[in-house]
């Protein structure tokens, strides 16, 4: 019972979404849109479950005194966003958007840019021309790095042109082969999930 119902639901939902692709009938389109809307509603509820679990874990950690100040900051920040949205709305100029624009977005961009240092440090340690493959990797990376620098366009057209050629042809060829592999693998896994052969989401039952 605990695994049979989910398997039937999975099969039916999977077949509906698969078969609608072969029909342009308005009923099939409407069904597709309906399932998509349901999907988004249920996804929102899963997010709320995740938030509830996060709050529960944070509260437990605060009670135990484990990283209390940081967990408190997380919890207060989490609560503050819905509160700001309730009090001042979410339109342009609202406190909610001010918090997003001036606190969240700059921090996200900074964390993203922080990776530049780690990638540079990792490449300095990892890039060694030990064999032919490693040399090709190193040369391709260097050409693209140089070709993407604005100053190279002033010095010569050769490196930027070579960069675009590498990205558009040899690199694209390997990328396409990998994408084909991913596509075939994803289709196989999706089919296994619909047929109930892949049951990881049921904890293997």
């Amino acid at each position: 019972m605990s695994s049979r119902i989910p398997l039937i639901v999975c099969l039916v939902a999977g077949l509906i979404m698969f078969l609608q692709y072969f029909s342009a009938h308005p009923v099939a389109r409407a069904m597709f849109n309906q399932v998509n809307d349901w999907w988004q509603i249920i996804f929102a509820f899963t997010l709320f479950v995740g938030v509830a679990a996060f709050m529960n874990n944070s509260m437990r950690a605060i009670r135990r005194g484990k990283e209390r100040p940081f967990k408190t900051v997380s919890l207060l920040a989490l609560i503050s966003m819905p509160l700001l949205a309730i009090i001042g709305g979410t339109k342009i100029g609202s406190p909610f958007l001010w918090t997003f624009d001036n606190l969240q977005a700059p921090m996200q961009a900074t964390v993203f840019s922080l990776l530049a240092f780690f990638v540079a440090s990792a490449s300095f340690r990892g890039f060694r021309a030990r064999n032919l493959q490693a040399t090709i990797l190193l040369v391709a990376a260097l050409i693209v790095l140089l070709g993407r620098m604005p100053i190279m366009a002033y010095l010569s057209d050769t490196i930027p042109e070579l960069t675009y050629w590498i990205q558009d042809y040899p690199s694209m060829a390997a990328r396409r082969a990998i994408l084909i592999g991913i596509g075939l693998g994803s289709m196989t896994t999706a089919l296994r999930v619909i047929l109930g052969l892949e049951r990881t989401y049921l904890r293997g039952q």
Binding site: C10, L11, A13, V193, Y201
Partner: peptide, 10 residues
Amino acid sequence: LALMIGAGAG
């Protein structure tokens, strides 16, 4: 969860 996974797979 099964509905989400099934619809996504389909």
